[in-house]
Design a protein around this nucleic acid. Structure first.
Lengths: 240, 240
DNA sequence: GCATCCATTATGTATATACATATTGCCAGC
DNA sequence: GCTGGCAATATGTATATACATAATGGATGC
């Protein structure tokens, strides 16, 4: 514990509560102890508890309501920041019909010599998926995904012919951190064919890695037609 | 003023200081009054002032240092969210020499019929720039930029042969909101030549619009070699 | 001139207290 | 059973106070 020794009391209280929320002990909607109780639990004044809990409210982790109490916030579907682009809602927002076509699913071990896959698997197995997102029947994006079955064991039972892996994960696994790497490639034969593009056409590639409290959840690689698709992100200065 | 009537005292103090910073009265690096002085200015206790100023520090707008005082934060080079990519520091981080070559500067009115340019200009004139970012002498990215001279009049005097427009703006103009639109294109003749690529090579295009408290500041379009460059963004779920 | 020490200063944390305010849930009255 | 109103409750805000801590800048000593 790095915070537990040096940090100030209200910071430790905050970290403690945060850990319970992120760890899943306190699920969304859970009511947390009232300030008076936390105050006896931590043996401090209400002002100190208030500072810790208000900070969590500012950070959006909990919601506070007078007289009612404080509750773990329900996670937003959409991040306002740089979304985990929700392809389905983007397509339906354009008035087109959305479908996901699953091309293959396979349970396998991490590839030998691939350190990133080994870290993702965390000693367990991986679920490897390939599929296509369709807008009005036409291919809109290709998806290659790896899911850590250690982090999301329920994924083994999910039917990804019915729900796209991205939508399923958003629903079933909380995430705390993500990283996008965006680049551009020229479509090679198979990709061009799958996306109905001329060979060599510019494509946008998004590779995303997702964490939950330090634990790897999933890797995904999405390929979009470059000129037809735009990735949009709105954001403010934010923190370090 | 929507905040000035109903809001609590510390919120009004916070909003007041925030307005001075965003309005430019207190530029980056400016030292703000010590808590004792704010306390007499607003006629309240230090705890109240502290709450307001600490909140601004949490939000990253100011930096506080014991004994030294509180200072308006210099905008971070790197946003943790989806950066305003700072091309220069990215290049030097790779151990290569950075240079910006200014190709053209022109002061002009917004193009007739272009609603976005008209909004950017806000009734004033625009500064239109073209240039190239060089890594070890080789072209790394092309930049086309429009700056609203109404929002940043000092830009008219800046020498963009010495400082790249992006770096100059980060230093001199605070921003509160930005939007990136990312797509991919095939390099046409001039772009391919400028970036030393084969014609048709995939390129990453970032178009960014930047605001300060609702006012448009600048538009920029950056073109990168698609396979050699990766845009990286790390982020969390964030707020609504 | 230079390094070291120390008082001063400004922020950081914590407490006890007081009153304000939004809401819930109960209770009275019909 | 339904409704209106009231009391209890949990958070929200503000104050006065106290001591901790980091760091500056000047004074001191050589």
């Amino acid at each position: 514990m790095s915070l537990t020794d040096t940090a100030s009391l209200h910071q430790r209280i905050r970290a403690d509560i945060e850990a319970r929320i992120l760890g899943g002990d306190w699920p969304p909607g859970h009511r947390l102890p009232v300030e008076a109780e936390l105050m006896t639990q931590y043996g401090c004044s209400r002002m100190t508890v208030n500072k810790a809990v208000s900070a969590l409210a500012d950070a959006g982790l909990i919601v506070r309501r007078r007289r009612a109490g404080s509750f773990v916030a329900r996670p937003r579907i959409h991040s306002a920041v740089l979304d985990i682009p929700d392809i389905q809602s983007e397509i339906t927002a354009r008035g087109e019909a959305y479908a996901f076509r699953l091309l293959s699913v396979r349970r396998r071990a991490p590839a030998r010599g691939d350190a990133d896959e080994a870290e993702l698997a965390g000693g367990g197995a991986l679920l490897a998926l390939r599929g296509a997102h369709l807008a009005s029947g036409r291919p809109f994006a290709l998806e290659e995904r790896l899911i850590s079955l250690r982090a999301a064991p329920a994924a083994a039972e999910a039917d990804f012919a019915l729900v796209s892996p991205g939508a399923w994960l958003l629903e079933h696994v909380a995430w705390t951190e993500a990283e996008n790497r965006i680049s551009a490639i020229n479509a090679d034969g198979p990709v061009a064919e799958a996306l109905a593009l001329d060979p060599g056409a510019a494509c946008l590639v998004v590779r995303r890695r997702t964490w939950r409290a330090g634990e790897r959840i999933t890797n995904v690689r999405l390929v979009f037609p470059g000129e037809a698709y735009e990735l949009v992100a709105r954001f403010g200065p934010g923190q370090a």
